[in-house]
């Protein structure tokens, strides 16, 4: 069986489901658990991370022949930290409230191993177009995953979605869901679901192969 060539679309799509950074690679857990207590925080964190991912991926890819092997990690971190600082300023310019809600976690995007991981494993070995597609896919997968965790936590923990009340008055908030332990619980339930779906997918693929042979 011939190996199918990897199309640009594949580079984008793999981050959404097959190699989803949160649910499959389990990378970037610190922001995924800490800033997913409401849907809007999760979205903002996801978008900020996506921006840094794309810009860092692009820069690393462009500079990949310029960066010597021995000094690559320090160069990547320097590039990533620069874009994180820019995002920090940009968010402050957009809304101080959002900046306060995201708190210390914006600065912590620097140490999100997802970004360093993609720079090292992908962007440094591929040309800029592919690096951007990969980063966009990973960023979308990361944002989506955070968003799904955030939805569960916000609905159960505060009875709202995007700050809009979903229930009549007297809703009993599940305090645990806005606490850190709620992040672990929501994350675990999604992981369970994703792994179960993946298992079914693999079984279906296995059956299809059997039929084909």
């Amino acid at each position: 069986m011939a190996i199918k060539p990897v199309t640009p679309t594949d580079e984008f799509v793999k981050g959404l489901w097959r190699d989803n950074p949160v649910f499959v690679q389990v990378l970037g857990m610190c922001p995924a658990l800490a800033v997913s207590n409401t849907a809007i925080n999760a979205l903002a964190m996801g978008l900020a991370t996506t921006f840094v991912l794309v810009m860092a991926g692009l820069s690393v890819s462009l500079l990949r022949h310029f960066i010597p092997r021995e000094a690559r990690i320090v160069s990547y971190i320097c590039i990533i930290a620069t874009f994180v600082t820019c995002v920090d300023y940009a968010i402050m310019a957009i809304s101080i409230e959002l900046h306060r809600a995201l708190g210390a976690f914006i600065a912590l995007i620097v140490v999100n191993c997802l970004i360093l991981g993609r720079s090292e494993a992908f962007a440094s070995k591929h040309h800029p177009g592919r690096a951007i597609l990969d980063a966009l896919g990973m960023g979308a997968g990361f944002t989506g995953a955070l968003f799904f965790i955030g939805i569960v936590r916000e609905i159960l923990g505060s009875g709202t979605l995007f700050g809009v009340g979903l229930f009549p008055d007297g809703f009993q908030a599940w305090t645990i869901m806005v606490l850190p332990s709620g992040g672990f619980l929501a994350m675990a339930v999604w992981l369970l679901l994703v792994n179960w779906l993946k298992k079914r997918e693999a079984e279906a693929a296995g059956r299809a192969e059997e039929v084909a042979s």
């Binding site: 009993q172 599940w174 305090t175 645990i176 869901m177 606490l179 332990s181």
Partner: peptide
């Protein structure tokens, strides 16, 4: 323990 963390008042 889950209930204690989720609904401390009740």
């Amino acid at each position: 323990a889950f209930l204690q963390a989720a609904f401390p008042q009740a």
